[in-house]
């Protein structure tokens, strides 16, 4: 088993919490993992990415070679396209469609969505709207994680357990919202794939 994942977003959008949930699950399953993070300068509203590598064999490089990532998981539509050279031929892009506009030359969102829709394998969802329905917009990244879950090759219950563990200090209500968000994201992909 091997999953090389590029997590993408804008500094401050919390892609690291997606990484830690997947990472925690991987460790529970006894898998090897490496995860590179971005600290410092680029955090301030710039584009950020994290390489997350999971495997049942020992992993050599902290960086995923170009064209070898199985998944791009992005919490922002423009950012979902930035790392395409990293994605393998059959790889999937899972992304939120809600733009984060902090630059004056942000391309028209319709053009971005058109690019995403032209990709052979993609899931694009309104994560924030779905998260709001689940109880909090803050859970949008967990919705994205749920939408990516069928491609992770990890039992869904294990991800649920990871959320229970990671959010345990934040109280039952927040845990429940995030679990709901995870399910909602998963449902979106399941329905999408069924169509």
């Amino acid at each position: 088993m091997k999953r090389d994942i590029i997590l993408a977003g804008v500094g401050g959008q919390g892609i690291i919490s997606i990484a830690s949930i997947i990472g925690f699950t991987a460790l529970q399953l006894g898998l090897y993992m490496k995860q590179s993070e971005v600290h410092g300068m680029s955090q301030r509203g710039g584009n950020v990415q994290s390489n997350l590598r999971i495997s049942d064999k020992e992993i050599a490089s902290d960086l995923i070679p170009l064209g070898k990532a199985d998944l791009i998981i992005s919490v922002e539509p423009l950012e979902s396209l930035r790392y395409l050279p990293g994605l393998c031929k059959d790889g999937w892009v899972i992304t939120s469609t809600k733009p984060y506009v902090n630059i004056t030359n942000y391309p028209p969102i319709d053009d971005i969505l058109k690019e995403i829709k032209s990709l052979p394998h993609h899931i694009a969802l309104e994560a924030e709207t779905i998260a709001k329905a689940a109880g909090s917009v803050k859970a949008a990244n967990i919705v994205i994680l749920g939408a990516a879950s069928p491609f992770l090759d990890m039992a869904f219950e294990k991800l649920e357990n990871a959320i229970r563990f990671i959010f345990r200090k934040k109280g039952e209500e927040i845990t429940a919202i995030n679990l709901k968000a995870l399910h909602a994201g998963r449902n979106f992909t399941d329905q999408n794939m069924a169509n």
Binding site: R44, N47, L84, P85, C88, I103, I112
Partner: peptide, 19 residues
């Protein structure tokens, strides 16, 4: 070389900025 798809032409830089 194992490169994936090209970055679409519409891509722009997103430099860091003050909060």
């Amino acid at each position: 070389e194992t490169k994936g798809l090209d970055i679409p032409a519409l891509m722009v830089n997103r430099p860091p900025s003050l909060c």
